[in-house]
Computed example of a mutant assay.
Amino acid sequence: MEKERVLFMCIHNAARSQMAEGLFRDLYGDIFDVYSAGSEPHTVDPLAIKCMEDIGIDISHHRSKSLKEFEGQEFDYVVTVCGNPYNACPFFVGGKKYFKQPFEDPSVFEGTEEEKFELFLKIRDELREWLEDLYYSYMIPNDESCNFSGELEGCCGPRDKEFSCR
Rank of each mutant, 00 (worst) to 15 (best):
R25Q: 11
V6M: 04
R63W: 00
F75T: 07
F32C: 03
S149V: 13
K50E: 15
E40V: 12
V81I: 11
L67F: 00
M139Y: 12
C10N: 02
I57A: 09
G83R: 07
D133I: 03
C82D: 11
L119H: 11
S164H: 07
D160Q: 08
E74M: 13
P141A: 04
F75C: 10
M19P: 07
E114R: 13
D45I: 07
E129M: 12
I140D: 04
L127I: 08
P90Q: 02
R16V: 10
Y86I: 10
G56Q: 08
I57K: 05
I49H: 02
Y35V: 00
F70Q: 02
Y77P: 03
A88D: 15
T112P: 05
Y86H: 15
V44E: 08
Y77W: 14
R159Q: 14
G22L: 06
L131H: 01
T43R: 13
I55V: 15
S164E: 12
L127Y: 03
E153C: 08
S64F: 02
L7G: 10
P141S: 03
S145M: 12
E129N: 07
F117T: 07
D125G: 02
D58R: 09
V79M: 08
D143V: 08
G94C: 02
S137Y: 07
H42I: 03
A15S: 15
S145Y: 14
E162H: 15
F117M: 13
E71T: 09
G94Q: 00
D26A: 15
G72T: 04
D76A: 06
C10D: 07
L23A: 09
E69N: 09
N13V: 06
V44I: 15
P102K: 00
R25K: 15
H62Y: 14
A14W: 08
K122P: 01
A20C: 11
V44C: 07
H61Y: 13
F92L: 06
E2W: 01
I11R: 13
C156M: 08
H42V: 03
E2P: 13
L47H: 12
G38V: 04
S164R: 14
E114T: 14
R166I: 06
F70L: 09
S145Q: 13
R166V: 01
R63L: 10
E129G: 01
H12N: 11
K68C: 00
D76S: 12
E162A: 14
W130C: 03
S39H: 04
K97A: 02
Y135T: 05
E115F: 14
N147C: 12
G111Y: 09
L152Y: 14
Y28N: 05
Y138W: 12
Q73W: 01
Y98G: 00
A15K: 10
G157L: 12
